[in-house]
Design a protein around this nucleic acid. Structure first.
Length: 979
RNA sequence: GCGGGGGUGCCCGAGCCAGGACAAAGGGGCCGGACUCAAGAUCCGGUGGGUGCAGGCCCAUCGUGGGUUCGAAUCCCACCCCCCGCACCA
């Protein structure tokens, strides 16, 4: 942890005091509560509500802080800003946490104890809270409460009256309405769907439910079970590569495992006993008739459905009866396991004897090559097995590696050979699915699901399998009508940073069926099928609309059961007759109308800001559902996105123990420091690295600001404006007013980092420069200048460091809250590019002199003569050049030569143009008179910087020029002579 | 694997879409100087290499290699490496 030095710690302490003070005052004055006001333009900004399963960290805070900076900016811009917040409790994780705590799971209890301890000191109280976590609602309520406190102590300007959770009955009514309407529009569908499943719990399982689920990725893999006829039965052999069926030479079974003869969906199948049990969960009807050892099948034959070839059934030790059907077909040309197992049987009499294999059956088995691929022989399995020196089918790891290699190579680069029937000649990558579909179409294959990795276990201890849910509800994003609407919505939306639009577009392409309900967890029940609970991303697509009315629902005591679908139809869509709805629901007509008005005032969402991780799911659904349910005028306008946060170069994670919780920020650092750092550290599309060293440096800059500000305030009231301004003052005012313009443009285009750089760091630096430039400026003028910029500066900074700015505003005697002041506009009168350029010339000249001193190293130098301002026509050349877009020498010269006066100077013009192109003369230079004036005025400053006596000469009439340097003077580049 | 994004100086990080004023903003670190008894803080200067007793010149340089162009960190192609997403996890 940082050790701040004493002055830093003192300053931080002061900051925190100020932050608490203003948070209290804002809250008491209800400054950020927004009500419809037809006289003002509105701006509706949302950031996703947090999921309340634990504390937030500085990564989450980045997103919310950016949202707040923008909300504050827009508010000062004169918009009526609605920036609300709610809490997400829907779904399985919170339920799962509760049940784990209930069942006494040590790890979870420890983890949650540490979470609670972040917020609560009293050990007894911690235990009480922890015990309450056996109810999921209490987990949700606890974290909703502490997170909202975190947000308040970071100074977020949220309208808290509209807070709700997704478990509130009013919200349930709202979601119910959505799903009824989606169903009516035909956007829901039903069908079979495979899920990871715990037979013991009777439920689908998610990452949270799987033992070690956060350490590896568990997925569902699809095998193709191929039916090999065996008299009246089918031996069902499974493969991940159905296209290799053409190269099958035999069948492998595990001789020691138990197999069954079972009626599966009316057919008699022979499969492993273990697989028969699992198939019951995959929407198959299974009746087991007979059990026997795998060895009993050895030597019998079955028929390959693709070519009628008779294949012998042979034993193999590598076959797992627990994987898919426990039966595999052997393709020794292309599958390393098969190749090795076959060769072992052929070459090892002991093994044959042990497994009871008749040598005659196997001596005629030869690999059948069916795939051609560059870089391998006809028998890739043999190639790889030899290369890796594999000799036994029990060398599982090596064989799996070999299999992966061939699978990848053949899938991407292989072609089916001529012996593959109608699939001959096509790429393997295509053949795989085509063969599968072809077989399934003929009733010769089925899909068998398996977990990967295998086995995996539920936290309850049971083995997880794949189950097929027959009646899963889906949101059908593939619906062409719906998709078209969503595309229209996307196309008219602004996405920033622009690079992420592509990801939206790609997602829109592939998004199809999305399971939208589950059998467990928290949430809203599907209104037309109460067994199902609407899943957490599906219930969070248009909830921004709910913010517009929830506070009024609460205030007026409307009950959830009064919130019928007709109410929402009216409020959100303007459908139906309010009198009638009022009669049915008992909600007052005027109240109904005011809900409608409020929604109509705020909608659409003007900006949704969030982290990029949400693009492929939440944000896509957000757009789809708005497009489905609302008319185009209520579709969202813009999305902005930011990347995440790492810490000291490393990703934050529980296991590393390097997560910095948001709650620590206002305690160990400060809200404003955090805000300033997190916004400034990187652009939106760049990952922010939270580095203590850099945080500290930002803290020092914040303190510089604080000191300068208080120094300015300490001088009391502003002195009168001087009649004549020094060049230093002119420069500061120009620089500052330019900064207002730039900062505003940056915020308008969501360039938050540039905004902070311009309005905070650059102005801070400018004041430093000003103070050095102002050696000859009278103190009253300096004081006036600094005081002049001061209140506008505070306004500029209010969005990012609202507490500090608000405090200084108050100390300055500002009226009301700074947070509600008008955003500053630049004072055009003070913007003077020539002065800014002239100062640049002066600074550059100082550097040049230093450079020369460094090179000549002559002792006893004490004077510098500067020859400023060559002939006026040279400035004219620069002026013409600066307005030329082209950079080609001859074109530039032609442009310049258009001027008859310049043409007179012929060759000299050409060499000047060349000097500009070469960068020896700056292209943008001040007017001659101003350049001269700047040097005259700043002579003492230059002298002070260089430690030399300075003499300024007009280059066109130098009084003293022993080295003839006056003629080397160029616009923006005085001649220099040091002696 | 598929899809997306990126690789900039000792480190972080702008610039790239709209090629030219780019040895490349800003911050950090480091070096030198000022201040100080000293440390810290603060302020000033420097920070690719070489070279020069006049502000310069030469070489290298924005992942690597090609290309387009009078001109490329910026555009095109190939390769290498890194990050993110891939849905029932919110």
């Amino acid at each position: 942890m940082t050790i701040f030095s004493i002055p830093e710690a003192t300053f931080l302490h002061e900051l925190r005091r100020i932050e608490r003070k203003w948070q209290k005052l804002w809250e008491e004055a209800h400054v950020f509560e927004a009500n419809p006001d037809p006289s003002k333009p509105k701006f509706f900004l949302t950031v996703p509500y947090p999921y309340t399963s634990g504390p937030l960290h500085i990564g989450h805070g980045r997103t919310y802080t950016l949202g707040d900076v923008y909300a504050r900016y827009k508010r000062m811009q004169g918009f009526n800003v609605l920036w609300p917040m709610a809490f997400h409790i829907t779904g399985t994780p919170i339920a799962s946490i509760s049940s784990r705590i209930s069942s006494g799971e040590e790890r979870t209890i420890k983890l949650y104890e540490s979470y609670v301890r972040l917020y609560v000191n009293d050990p007894k109280e911690i235990q009480r809270i922890l015990r309450s976590f056996t109810k999921p609602e209490n987990v949700a309520m606890f974290f909703a409460e502490v997170i909202s406190n975190d947000f308040k102590s970071l100074g977020y300007s949220i309208d808290w009256r509209r807070r709700f959770t997704t478990g509130d009955p009013e919200y349930n009514s709202f979601v119910t309405w959505q799903f009824l309407r989606l169903k009516e529009k035909g956007f829901l569908s039903r069908g079979a769907h495979p899920v990871l499943y715990c037979p013991n719990d009777g439920n689908a399982v998610g990452e949270d439910d799987i033992q070690g689920g956060d350490e590896f990725r568990s997925e569902i893999v699809e095998f193709t079970g191929v039916k090999f006829r065996m008299s009246n039965s089918f031996l069902v052999a499974s493969s991940l590569r159905p296209e290799t069926l053409f190269g099958a030479t035999n069948i492998w079974i595990n001789p020691n495992a138990s197999y069954v003869r079972a009626i599966v969906d009316g057919e008699e199948w022979i499969i492993s006993e273990k697989s028969a049990e699992k198939l019951r969960y995959q929407a198959h009807e299974v009746i087991i008739n007979e059990r026997f050892k795998g060895a009993d099948l050895i030597g019998r034959k079955c028929v390959n459905p693709v070519n009628g070839r008779e294949l012998p059934i042979l034993p193999a030790l590598f076959v797992e009866d627990d994987n898919a059907t426990g039966v595999v077909y052997s393709v020794p040309a292309h599958a390393p396991f098969d190749y090795v197992a076959l060769r072992e049987l052929q070459e090892n009499p002991d093994l044959r004897k042990k497994l009871g294999v008749d040598p005659k059956i196997i001596e005629d088995i030869h690999p059948i090559s069916i795939i051609s691929i560059d870089g391998y022989s006809d028998f890739p399995a043999e190639d790889v097995v030899k290369r890796l020196g594999i000799s036994s089918q029990l060398e599982r790891d090596a064989l799996e590696e070999a299999t992966r290699e061939i699978y990848k190579a053949e899938f991407y680069h292989g072609y089916m050979k001529d012996n593959c029937s109608i699939f001959s000649g096509i790429p393997v990558s295509e053949a795989k699915n085509k063969v599968k579909e072809w077989l399934k179409g003929k009733g010769l294959a089925v899909t068998i699901y398996e977990t990967s990795p295998r086995p995996i276990y539920c936290r309850c201890g049971a083995r997880i399998i794949v189950a097929v849910l027959k009646d899963q509800w889906f949101l059908n994003y593939a619906n062409p009508h719906w998709k078209k609407l969503a595309w229209e919505a996307l196309n008219r939306m602004q996405i920033y940073p622009r690079r992420y639009r592509k990801l939206f577009e790609d997602t829109f392409q592939w998004v199809a069926l999305r399971p939208c309900a589950r059998r467990r967890g928290l949430g809203t029940r599907l209104p037309f099928d109460k067994e199902w609970i609407i899943e957490s991303l599906s219930d969070s697509t248009i909830y921004m609309a709910f913010y517009t009315i929830i506070h009024k629902i609460r205030q007026s005591g409307i009950r959830a059961d009064q919130l019928t679908p007709e109410v929402f139809d009216y409020v959100f869509l303007g459908k139906g007759d309010p009198e009638e709805i009022s009669n049915i629901t008992g909600i007052d007509v005027s109240l109904l109308k005011s809900l409608r008005d409020e929604f109509d005032y705020w909608y659409p969402v003007d900006l949704r800001h969030t982290a990029v991780g949400h693009i492929t799911n939440h944000l896509t659904f957000f757009i789809f559902h708005h497009a489905a349910l609302f008319p185009p005028k209520h579709w969202p306008k813009a999305i902005t996105l930011n990347e995440y946060v790492i810490r000291e170069g490393a990703k934050m994670s529980k296991s590393k123990g390097n997560v910095l919780p948001l709650v620590e920020i206002p305690r160990k650092y400060s809200a404003d420091l955090y805000r300033l750092y997190i916004v400034y550290a990187a652009d939106l599309p760049t990952v922010v690295d939270w580095r203590e060293e850099q945080v500290l440096s930002v803290l020092r800059r914040l303190r510089d600001f604080w000191n300068i500000a208080n120094e300015i305030l300490g001088r009391g009231d502003s002195p009168p404006r001087p009649k004549k301004l020094s060049i230093a003052t002119k420069w500061l005012l120009s620089r500052f007013n330019t900064a207002i313009m730039r900062a505003t443009n940056y915020l308008e285009s969501y360039r938050f980092r540039d905004y902070v750089q311009e309005s905070f760091f650059n102005i801070l630096n400018a004041i430093g420069t000003f103070r050095r430039l102002a050696v000859n400026t009278p103190p009253e003028e300096r004081a006036w200048a600094e005081r002049y910029i001061f209140d506008k500066w505070l306004k500029l900074l209010s969005p990012v460091i609202p507490h500090v700015a608000e405090e200084l505003w108050e100390r300055m005697g500002g009226r009301k809250f700074l947070s509600t002041q008008q955003w500053p506009t630049p004072d055009e009168e003070f913007i003077d590019k020539d002065v800014e350029l002239a100062i640049e010339v002066v600074e550059r000249t100082i550097n040049d002199v230093r450079d020369i001193l460094h090179v000549i190293k002559r002792p006893g130098l004490s004077k510098v003569h500067l020859y400023v301002g060559p002939e006026e026509w040279k400035y004219k050349v620069c002026e013409i050049l600066s307005s030329c877009a082209s950079a080609k020498l001859n074109e530039l010269i032609r442009n310049v030569m258009k001027d008859p006066e310049l043409r007179k100077h012929g060759k000299e013009v050409v060499s000047l143009v060349r000097a500009v192109i070469d960068g020896k003369v700056p292209r943008f230079v001040p007017k001659r008179a101003i350049e001269l004036y700047a040097f005259m005025e700043l002579r003492d400053y230059i002298a002070q910087e260089l430690g030399l006596k300075v003499f300024i000469h007009e280059a066109t009439s130098p009084g003293y020029d022993p080295a003839h340097k006056a003629k080397s003077a160029m616009p923006g580049r005085p001649g220099v002579y040091i002696e």
